[in-house]
C-alpha cells in the first residue's frame, strides 16, 4: 500500500451561487506526480488553494500528511504550509522585493541561516530554474516566463515535501518549459517529492505525470496512470486530450 499524503473527500465549494466543486474526491500518494487537467475555470486553482488552506471547503474533508486540516486555525495551518511549496498561476511575487529577497523570504522568516548561506541557496535555486544574474531585478522588470521561474525557485527554497504547481509551464518558451518538466521529474526521483501539477499542456502532462486526473463539473471524472489515460475510452477524456471542440463538453460552458 502506498502512503497517501493528500486526501480530499467529498469536497463542495461554491462562490456566491456559483458551484465550483461538487463532491470532489482525490488521493495523492507519496512520491508521485499527479497532473490535473481540466477546462479553464473548472476549479483547478481552487483545488490547490483548498489543499494549503487558503480557502476552506463548504463541506468535505481534507487530510494533508495524515492530518485533518479543515478545522485548523490559520496559525496551526502554518505547520503544514511550511512543508508545502506552491507555484502560483500568477507567480504572485512580492512587487516591493527584488528577486533575491523574494526567493529568500521563507528562509529569512523561518530559519536562522546567515545572509551568506541564504545567498548561496538562492543562487542554487535560481540556477535550477535556469536563471542567472537576475538577483537584483524587481518583478516588474521580469518577463512573464521569468516571473514564473522565480516563483518556482521560491516554492522550492524550503525543500518542501509537497510541491503544488499551478500551470508551471504556461507562457514559457518550449525550451524552458522542457527544462521545468525535467526539474519536476528530477525532484521526484532525487528527493521523493510529491507533486501536483496543473497544466493545459498535454505533452508535459504525459511527460511528468505518473497519474493524470480530469476535473470536470466539480468532480474528478477520470484519474489513472498516464498511459491508461492515453488509451481511455471515456469520451470526456478523449475530447480533452485530443483538444476537440466537438464532443460531450460544450465549448461555451465555463
Amino acid at each position: 500500500m502506498k502512503e497517501v499524503v493528500i486526501r480530499m473527500e467529498n469536497i463542495y465549494k461554491s462562490f456566491g451561487n456559483k458551484s465550483v466543486l461538487s463532491g470532489l474526491n482525490l488521493e495523492v500518494f507519496k512520491g508521485e506526480t499527479l497532473v490535473i487537467i481540466g477546462r479553464s475555470g473548472c476549479g483547478k486553482s481552487v483545488s490547490l488553494k483548498l489543499i494549503i488552506g487558503l480557502i476552506r471547503p463548504d463541506a468535505g474533508n481534507i487530510q494533508v500528511f495524515g492530518e485533518e486540516i479543515t478545522h485548523l486555525t490559520e496559525e496551526e495551518m502554518e505547520r503544514i504550509r511550511k512543508r508545502i511549496g506552491v507555484v502560483f498561476q500568477s507567480s504572485a511575487l512580492l512587487n516591493s522585493l527584488n528577486v533575491e529577497e523574494n526567493i529568500a523570504l521563507p528562509l529569512v522568516e523561518h530559519t536562522q541561516l546567515d545572509p551568506e548561506e541564504i545567498k548561496e541557496k538562492v543562487a542554487e535555486k535560481l540556477s535550477l530554474v535556469g536563471l542567472k544574474g537576475v538577483e537584483k531585478l524587481y518583478p516588474d522588470d521580469l518577463s512573464g516566463g521569468m516571473k514564473k521561474r522565480v516563483g518556482i525557485a521560491r516554492a522550492l527554497i524550503m525543500e518542501p515535501e509537497i510541491v503544488l504547481y499551478d500551470e508551471p509551464t504556461t507562457g514559457l518558451d518550449p525550451i524552458t518549459a522542457s527544462a521545468i518538466n525535467t526539474l519536476i521529474m528530477e525532484l521526484e526521483k532525487k528527493l521523493n517529492t510529491t507533486s501536483i501539477v496543473v497544466t493545459h499542456d498535454m505533452k508535459s502532462a504525459y511527460l511528468v505525470g505518473d497519474r493524470i486526473g480530469l476535473l470536470y463539473q466539480g468532480k474528478m471524472v477520470e484519474i489513472d496512470r498516464a498511459e491508461n489515460i492515453k488509451k481511455s475510452s471515456n469520451p470526456l477524456v478523449i475530447q480533452f486530450i485530443t483538444g476537440s471542440h466537438e464532443g460531450p463538453i460544450p465549448v461555451e460552458e465555463g
Binding site: L54, E78, R79, L94
Partner: peptide, 18 residues
C-alpha cells in the same frame, strides 16, 4: 489592495508567513 488582488497576500500565507 494591489497586493491582495495580485495574490501576494495569498502567497505569503502559503509560505506560512502571517
Amino acid at each position: 489592495g494591489t497586493m491582495k488582488i495580485s495574490e501576494e497576500i495569498d502567497a505569503l500565507r502559503a509560505m506560512a508567513i502571517n
